[in-house]
């Protein structure tokens, strides 16, 4: 029902905004590449019965740490990208493990805990890069520092990484640019998640999500399974964010990662997923529907009410409201 609602709203918004279909399709495709893997990252914790993992924002921050370090050491090109990926993944594994340990302590309250973990993570991240650089950590690349000498600048340009991957196999069909390589990368990740479901690990996820006690009766170490789920999710989030950043071409050091969790969750839910069940189909459908609505709302607001801000409020409400609605609709959880 939810996807249908989104579909109707998107169509209405498209009509009222007067935007060209070609433009919208282009934008949606770009966002598909940018946000695709991040939304996919949310699927695994849902499969393991842990609900929405708002702590994917931590995975995003790990990617950003890798990026900043790369800029700091002035690495560029493909080797730079590899460095970022490697650092990001290692950090994600570590943080994912810690988050998993935390969540095992708070069974039944995972979702609220992941939100708070996200906030705490943001705080630590900001502290390190705003106050740590220039005081405790000596920067290797003075260009990226603020003029006063302490803290990294708000915007870091990524010209050395821009367009490495984006332009591979770029095909133009009429108005629309189709980045085939990047789309295939996203599909590759989707296939990985699909494959995971057919492994013994995937079976344990299913078991743990159905019933913790029964899984334990079957000899499954539920703590380990849940930690694995979160670690995988965080690593995927890291990958997803790397794709996002390199697509944008510029890094907003202190704000790029904010709200990735909310919008990704909303997108997944828009595709018809629920707190306890999410598939790849939900993810893909959701991204298309959610982002279409996202793109057309401000212009539709302008045309309908003469105030683009109204369109923005509408889409914020839709994002948060979808999550609240999904929470309401889910049946109450058994401990």
């Amino acid at each position: 029902m939810v996807p249908l609602l989104f579909f109707v709203l998107s169509l209405a918004g498209l009509y009222f905004s007067g935007m060209s279909t070609g433009f919208v399709i282009n934008e949606v495709m770009t966002r598909f590449v940018r946000d695709g893997v991040m939304v996919l990252a949310l699927i695994i914790p849902i499969r393991a019965g842990m609900g929405l993992n708002f702590a994917v924002v931590v995975g995003a921050m790990c990617a950003q740490v890798g990026l900043i370090l790369a800029v700091d050491y002035q690495l560029s090109g493909l080797s730079g990208l590899c460095f970022i990926t490697l650092t990001g993944v290692m950090l994600s594994l570590l943080t994912g493990y810690l988050i998993g340990r935390c969540l095992n302590r708070v069974r039944g309250k995972e979702m609220i805990t992941t939100i708070i973990i996200g906030f705490v993570g943001t705080g630590i991240y900001q502290l390190v890069f705003m106050a740590g650089y220039g005081t405790v950590i000596t920067p290797g690349n003075p260009e990226m520092m603020l003029s006063r000498g302490i803290g990294i600048r708000n915007m870091v340009d990524l010209e050395m990484f821009r367009n490495i991957l984006d332009t591979i196999w770029l095909v133009t069909v009429g108005d629309v640019d189709v980045p085939i390589f990047m789309i295939m990368v996203v599909i590759l990740f989707a296939m990985i998640i699909g494959y995971l479901g057919k492994t013994p690990m995937g079976q344990t996820f299913k078991a743990v999500s159905q019933s913790n006690e029964k899984a334990m009766l079957n000899g499954i170490d539920t703590n380990r399974v849940r930690i694995s789920a979160i670690m995988i999710s965080t690593v995927l989030a890291c990958f997803g964010h790397i794709l996002y950043i390199q697509n944008i071409g510029m890094l907003n050091v202190y704000t790029a990662h904010l709200n990735t969790d909310i919008f990704s969750c909303a997108a997944l839910l828009a595709g018809g997923a629920s707190i306890s069940k999410a598939t790849i189909r939900h993810a893909f459908l959701g991204i298309i529907l959610f982002h279409t609505l996202f793109i057309v709302s401000p212009q539709a607001g302008q045309n309908l009410f003469g105030n683009p801000a109204l369109g923005e409020y509408f889409r914020s409400f839709v994002a948060y409201g979808t999550i609240a609605f999904a929470l309401m609709m889910s049946s109450s959880r058994k401990t």
Binding site: M111, Y313, S316, G321, A324, L327, M328
Partner: peptide, 24 residues
Amino acid sequence: NRVKGREEITATFVGFSFVPLMNF
């Protein structure tokens, strides 16, 4: 009252959703 067991997270998002609604 519909979300026994998940009040805190639902409360968070109800709060968050109310804000853009009131922004209108």
